[in-house]
Every structure is written in C-alpha cells, then in structure tokens.
Design a protein around this nucleic acid. Structure first.
Lengths: 114, 114
DNA sequence: GAAAAATTTAACCAAACGGTTGAAAATCGA
DNA sequence: TCGATTTTCAACCGTTTGGTTAAATTTTTC
C-alpha cells in the first residue's frame, strides 16, 4: 500500500529527521526563513557541516535553498513531511487498539479521553 | 519544547524508521506477533542481518522481543511511535499555513478544498 | 579589478551502518 | 546425551555518516 516509489523518499525523510542537529535546524526554520549563515551561527560545529546538513534536508525535500545574491535563503517545505505523516498514520490505524494508551501518554493535556 | 531527554530517543526512532527493511518488518508485525525466524524468512538477507534490524527496532522501543522457549516472539510497541508523532504534530502546527496545500496533496480523498 | 563575505566542494578521518560468515548459546526432540 | 533448531554474538568488510580544514566559487563592496 505504501510500497511504491515513495519508499526511498521515505528513507531520506526519516533519515533526515534522525539527526538532532537537523531537527533543530527545522525548528529554527519553522520560525521563518534564514540564510545558511544565520542557521549555522548558533551551532558549535563548522559552517561547512551545517551546509551539509542542509543538503541532507534539501535532498529529503524538507527544505529548499534559494540563492539570493551571495546568500542562500532556506525555507521549510512541509510537503515532504506528508509522506512521513502518511506512513505513521497508516500504522496508527493498525496499531489503533494500543494507541489509546499512547494518546493518553503523549497528549495528556487534560482528562479528555478522545 | 521538545529538546529534553526525548531527543536521543527520537534519534533512534527516526533512524529505525529510515530503513526500508525495518519498515517492512514493522508492516509485517502490524499483522500480528512473529518469531525472528518467521520475520526473516521472506527477506533476501541473512538471518543475522534481520536479527540486527530487530535489535535496532527494539532499541528504538518500537518492538519488543520476548523469549518463548528457543524462539523469540516479536511484537509491536506503538508507544514509541508517540514521540515521532508528537514531533511531527508539533511541526504541523508551525507549518500549518502550508499544510493546507499538503493535506490537499496527501489526503486527496475528495474535492474538499478546506 | 581586488578584497571581503557567503557558501559549496573536495579531501580526509573516525565511527557507525548494513551486510556477510562462522562460532556460541539455549532449547527442543529423539 | 546427542543432534537439530533458533537465535545471538563476534569478527570482518565496504559504504555512508558527521565532522574537520582548506580550496574554489560567486557576489558584493570599495
């Protein structure tokens, strides 16, 4: 059902998401577009390393880089998360009987059972 | 907000999810518990390789292995998916304005524009 | 046009990955 | 107990990963 060509794309998306630096980059990008320099500044690693992380995110389709002068503006591309969401959603359906307990753990915002 | 101790666990979950063999294992386990041998049979790789994949899934908390005689019964543990779902959900909120277009792409169940 | 700035690319390195084979460990059945 | 079965563990191998530094590229600014 999900085993078409999406597969290898899903590989890249989940792999991109598996690194904490890259997730932090996405967190930052969620607040608005930023240049590579702006993104890399708070990280304790080299500029080039961040540029490579951006490459991974871009190849996964999660981020776009647009040249603007000598800078490169990075933006989120949430469409790529769709595959991951769809995969997770697909499994949610299968695992549903145990997802009751799961939702109680994750979304414990109130006593709301549903 | 999500940068506590969950981080390194999220690393493991997303990493576990990033391999197509491991996702197929989860697919199979979604249909019911199975022994390592049963799981490994359809795969073209060695038994030991599948056992290692199971180890990755287990360390990510996605799967449990319970000894039963000389066999080991594997089951899904959907609670671990909760962190991934929560992370994705967190970002969905931020990316919401673009998620309209996303949902139109992913879940095109009808012509419903909103 | 030359210097400076922003970014990528290249070369390199250690560690991790995904795979192999073969040995070890535990359990079952005769 | 002995042999077969199920699984893990250990050692190994080639590739990828995440990092480095240094050079190359592009654009801005003087």
């Amino acid at each position: 059902m999900f085993n078409h060509m999406v597969e290898h794309h899903l590989d890249r998306v989940f792999h991109a998401l598996s690194d904490p630096t890259r997730r932090t980059i996405l967190d930052r990008l969620a607040e608005g577009e930023a240049t590579v320099g702006q993104i890399s500044r708070p990280f304790p690693i080299s500029f080039a390393a961040v540029s490579k992380h951006l490459g991974v995110l871009e190849r996964a389709g999660l981020v776009t880089r647009e040249a603007r002068g000598r800078e490169r503006v990075c933006r989120l591309n949430p469409a790529a998360l769709g595959d991951a969401r769809a995969w997770l959603g697909f499994h949610q359906r299968f695992w549903s009987e145990r997802l009751d307990a799961l939702d109680a753990m994750v979304g414990q915002k109130s006593g709301k059972p549903d």
